[in-house]
Design a protein around this nucleic acid. Sequence first.
DNA 1: CTGTTAGCGCCTTCAC
DNA 2: GTGAAGGCGCTAACAG
Lengths: 337, 337
Amino acid sequence: MQIKSSIKDIAKRANVSVSTVSRVLNNSKYVSEDLKRRVLSVVEETGFKPNMVARGLVNKKTSLIGVLIPRISNNFFSKLIEGIEEVLQTYGYNILLSTSYNEIEKELEYLNIFEDRQLDGIIFSVTEFTDQHKNFFGETVVPTVFLGQKVETLKKYPYVTIDNIKAAYEATRYLIKQKHKRIAIMAGPEKDCATGDNRLQGYLEALKEAGLPLYTSWQTRRYHTIDDGYYAASQIMSQSEKPTAIFACSDQQALGAINYLREHGYRVPEDISVMGFDDVDLATVFRPKLTTVKQNPVDMGATAARLLIDQIHGNSLTALENLVPYRLVVRESTKSL
Amino acid sequence: MQIKSSIKDIAKRANVSVSTVSRVLNNSKYVSEDLKRRVLSVVEETGFKPNMVARGLVNKKTSLIGVLIPRISNNFFSKLIEGIEEVLQTYGYNILLSTSYNEIEKELEYLNIFEDRQLDGIIFSVTEFTDQHKNFFGETVVPTVFLGQKVETLKKYPYVTIDNIKAAYEATRYLIKQKHKRIAIMAGPEKDCATGDNRLQGYLEALKEAGLPLYTSWQTRRYHTIDDGYYAASQIMSQSEKPTAIFACSDQQALGAINYLREHGYRVPEDISVMGFDDVDLATVFRPKLTTVKQNPVDMGATAARLLIDQIHGNSLTALENLVPYRLVVRESTKSL
DNA sequence: CTGTTAGCGCCTTCAC
DNA sequence: GTGAAGGCGCTAACAG
């Protein structure tokens, strides 16, 4: 293919009409074997490829799915993408990837871009579901699946997530059962509902239930990066009153925390227990092996993608709420007092 | 916006022609303040958004860049994406993400999709540059930047990479200087040129130069995952003749290898040294801290994106070869004999 | 300055 | 079965 050829050109060369070409290209209507052959051979020769943009314009579909996540360099999210891509691919969709870095404005911005671009669907790992989000999803008509937290919208879009409150509650319960009484938490960033508010809530419930002390200086809210975990640990451990266990709301933060602790002479888990969340790839490679709340991001991504496809195909969805399993995995970074 | 409105509708409601609407929307030509205001207010009211697909059809640009990498869950590649997205975003481009899992057929498949979709550019982290690739890039006219290895094409596309042969050579040299004489290598997958062939070559050159033994049973070729590193280590260590050092061509593999070694009673680095490659986030969090060849993927991604933008803008590019710096970082996973 | 018109490349009635 | 014609939503000459 030298210069962009169009359906018209190949119609001419095959001595047929453009509609015939279109028909054989789409297998949309019966075309005599003769013409079909003629068209196909010209297509072959010229290496002709139909213009997907033009096609999209008339068909009103782009075969593109917008995927919006907070951060791609977090193993949890990249696994999510793996799951998403795997199923979308089999349905002929591609991924338009955007990252918000947990910034609400960026989320809104990308959401609008998704709409402008006429994307066929959206998979969205929300940070905080604000009124502006609600507005957007009230007005838009783009099939959507939310990932990572429960989201209530007028339009009734499904979401797939674990029960974050419960999971955090159970993780904290476990620590309590291990006789820990002074437990700190490193939660997600300030505005992050799922890994921030929800998990913090579960933690608080467990502490209250057990009648344990709640120090706000033992509660941090930071991004899910190793660096932020390191910093959060430094804050917590700079208090005069020190915890015997830290519940990190992501393995990334747990790793950063352990790094800090070790550099400052604490042994994990002998001096202080650290619980993670996610069970990323290296949770079992790291030493001590991370005790953590295992999620299955590949599955979650795949599930979300399937729910999206269903919506696009107009299938009635079975349920809005898709709670997926998680599991507390006890390994070496925590111990009983 | 209830039902999809078009430029036509808002032209009607504002009592102007479609071209006027188009003009104010694009700021393309001077429009009287009066009309402009009228149009803008209607746009405001209706929440009108121009259809990017239609726009793309006439402008022959999609503002979409195809990014093709082997694997997103590898920290090195996700960092690459971070760098790419950061600069593309400022130019109004979005990313169409695809992963090849190092499969040549998938690469070709996605490349074709990129072309079909009329993407404005391609950033491609090649596995192996085959004749089919060469064909594709000979016929296509899509601006491209190669990432991670030197690639020669007719069309003269730029590439950004470190000098893999040299880097591997130096890494191996270092091990040799540390008095290691029996050095194994865990290279990239069979068909991977950069992390496979090139790094293996650098390793071999260093060994030959030093007159050290070359055992093919000390050379593995596997994917850059923790699991594959684990497995590769098991293969190497099952030989009767055992190495005193392993040069892993990715930190992922190094991590997997160390995991294997420890599970099987070897201490790192006391019994066996392990050298990594990449310097991913957790190289310094892991214990022992990884001795590794540091790359800067965020920068590399950003550089690639800039080179692509230059191409798209028709700027003459300064150089095809963009060798970026790397650095051997000695930490704790290797030691002198 | 503004409106009319002709496409961009493709699909889809609608007649033949 | 096949072709001609209209239109998807937008932009860019071309007149006025």
